[in-house]
Write a protein that binds this DNA or RNA. Sequence first.
DNA 1: TTGACTGTACCGTCTGGACGGTTTATGTGC
DNA 2: GCACATAAACCGTCCAGACGGTACAGTCAA
Lengths: 182, 182
Amino acid sequence: MSDKPTTKDLILDAAETVVAREGARHMTIDAVAADARISKGGVLYHYPNKMALLEAMVTRMVSGVCDDIHRAESEARERGVPVLPHVIETLFQRDGPKEQVGNAVLAASAEQPQLLEVAGGVLAKEFQRLTEDAPDPVLAQIAFLTLDGLKLTALLGLDHVFDHQIDAIKHRVITMTREMYQ
Amino acid sequence: MSDKPTTKDLILDAAETVVAREGARHMTIDAVAADARISKGGVLYHYPNKMALLEAMVTRMVSGVCDDIHRAESEARERGVPVLPHVIETLFQRDGPKEQVGNAVLAASAEQPQLLEVAGGVLAKEFQRLTEDAPDPVLAQIAFLTLDGLKLTALLGLDHVFDHQIDAIKHRVITMTREMYQ
DNA sequence: TTGACTGTACCGTCTGGACGGTTTATGTGC
DNA sequence: GCACATAAACCGTCCAGACGGTACAGTCAA
């Protein structure tokens, strides 16, 4: 049961690769098809038009983040540790070097900014829920925003933090959120 | 001496407006010209091709940020207050609702991600310089990253923080950086 | 006279996507 | 075990429109 990825997912992977390599502007159906080693007609079979492809990219990204959050929450509850620090740590982990989730966001905002309104709403609800019950909601927001800053500057190639500094930042943010519970 | 903006600047304004309204993908020379109430030939008179226009957008944004930083630094020195908190506060101020600096970044990364490498380098130097001399460099980085998170999520329409929470976050970040000097 | 445009016409290329055809997987009846 | 049917998955091509860019003649204020 290798659970091999569906063609639909391979297409989304290809789309993200293209965006990362050539910029959102050049995420054409042809380019995606070439990267996925599929014909253009094949891509259009799974996603009837470009907008549908973009929506799928955004949806997959958002649900990926939400899944990680929910998994981290139940893990924390099982272990009896505070939820927030564990969620933050999990999301930091995501921030690996080759992780290119988020290119969906770039492509969507390049094509039609409104495409992200729904995504923004879903994420907003998660983050509000997670932070409002925290002992120190403002500090919790700062923790999440630090994460956003790190990921988004990296995504846009504007990252001003060196790799060797990231661990220290990550450690400090997690420590800060842990201290809220003492 | 009203110092009325040059046509070149009006064109860049128009470009940013178009990106914010229609997405980076639709920042065409025609659209920019229409928004600037100038003919297409007029745009191409000032910027010989689209790449030159994009470079000018990025350059203007970066130098705008750098100017604000340098101004805040000398202000702080004149008043004899710590530099870092004042710089952070100044940059937060920038984050007004209609502030749309940063759309240049979106357009550039959509067209050619490499365009931002230079910009990233310049900003990285500023931020490294500002943080490495701070009593607590890691906390200083977190402060800047919180700012980045706030601005970039707003730029992408992924903002998960409500307006009424921003003031509290801003206040807390500034307080945190001030406490470093005590 | 010159610099800063306007306006129009035009070219080559790229792109979305419609369409018709072909292969492959999955049954289904016998 | 096999012939056949049916739908899903996929290919290759074509076309209209959009876009970047060029060319050039004309306008108009300083």
